[in-house]
Design a protein around this nucleic acid. Sequence first.
DNA 1: TCCAATTCGCGTACGCCGTACGTGAATGGA
DNA 2: TCCATTCACGTACGGCGTACGCGAATTGGA
Lengths: 249, 249
Amino acid sequence: MRMAGEEPTSIWMQPEAHERSGPGRRPGYSREQITRTAVQIADAEGVEAATMRRIAGELGTGAMSLYRYVPRRDDLFDLMIDLAMSEIELPDGPSGDWRGDLTLLARQTRAAGLRHPWLIALLTSRPTLGPNLLRVHEFALSAFNGTGLDIDDITGFVGMLNDYVHSAIRREIGWLEEARRTGLDPERWKRDYMGPYVRQVVESGAFPLFNRSVLDSRTAHLAPEERFRHGLDRILDAIAALIPSLCPR
Amino acid sequence: MRMAGEEPTSIWMQPEAHERSGPGRRPGYSREQITRTAVQIADAEGVEAATMRRIAGELGTGAMSLYRYVPRRDDLFDLMIDLAMSEIELPDGPSGDWRGDLTLLARQTRAAGLRHPWLIALLTSRPTLGPNLLRVHEFALSAFNGTGLDIDDITGFVGMLNDYVHSAIRREIGWLEEARRTGLDPERWKRDYMGPYVRQVVESGAFPLFNRSVLDSRTAHLAPEERFRHGLDRILDAIAALIPSLCPR
DNA sequence: TCCAATTCGCGTACGCCGTACGTGAATGGA
DNA sequence: TCCATTCACGTACGGCGTACGCGAATTGGA
């Protein structure tokens, strides 16, 4: 029997009911199948298109059927995040080359963030701790194992890296997603929507350093991947400069 | 006459119609008044409570009246962000002590982020460039003026700082907001909702470094403000280590 | 084999949301 | 005074998450 006041807890502690042995009808779907469908819709049309009705429709069933597998829509977001994070392929342990390990992780994360343009937004809007996020986080922490760093320092550095990677991906996606959301094509959005305002701001001359960052940037015309790598290297340089065991000259 | 296919453009380029001289009824409200009301509601009950109907109700009018002042709800978000950013008080120009200037900015930003728990979430979810965000951003850039840094490097450092400040605020708010959203009180949320899952993860021993970061942290028991300052100082250290003109020992 | 127990699929319904549209009231210039 | 213009806002539409309940399916035990 299902109690009325269902106690809320993390989705990761509510295993789904498949592989039962008792009586009752067998489930026709699965969390993974539902999550995969939601991810496909969100990839193609944005996360706001992945509604319960739409996901169910794609599966050929009714919206309320999904609630046999997922308590709330928010939990489905957590499952989507974890499914996307599961695509990040990493070696079992650190190689000893912390820069190389973290560069690999950053590139994998960027790839996942671009494949699933909703991933970073969901990740920063929800305090989720799915198994794959834990796996990836553990790898990041482990890359610093052996450098003689304090666990608090390690956590701080991993945070710095995560922050950079996430905001770099957001920058790379940002305008594209906003254009999709408003229904304009990206070129037109940049030219007609944000363009005139930025131009007005620049021409007003009120913010000279902002102007220089827009007009005099030498990295602005790099390919996105190179720009990402460049910024990443600067963060890694900053971290290296603070690791005592490396003893910079 | 209002055309059917209203061309979309930034809210900052569509001045509101008050201070007219032609015929027609005088407006009874204003963008600022509406925005201020929205902010009050969002502060008290979360941004999702600041619906058009609710804001209008608070003002004693109908929901559709607001659309004479704000084209879309999303634009109201931009106005809310800018109003919150306007509370960040800064000197007119940099003092010459870049560390001091950026520390001041970080503390002001934290204060605004805690006063308006929705601010950071909106800020990272929308590529907005309101006048007050520009003002604050310009101040951050200007703090590095005179250090002999490249504009790209300055932009990168300001980005690092922003990333830290934002994610530190998110961490500080995160659980509190999630608890409010789900309607549980914060203590109960931490104990009954996330607590058991984290405990299970920790006890499984599958992620030893994650465990150390949870159990062996020495900064975990600091007061929030001190923790913020500590992390901020580490970022500033990292930046200082990369500024050639400072020539670290 | 038959039945009681249990679970699933899902239709219906409720109360929200953003906002398109149209109408009537207010306003100031000619 | 008359009229073009602008405002306030009631009504309505389509869509959302999801509470609830019922018939169908499936099983273990009698």
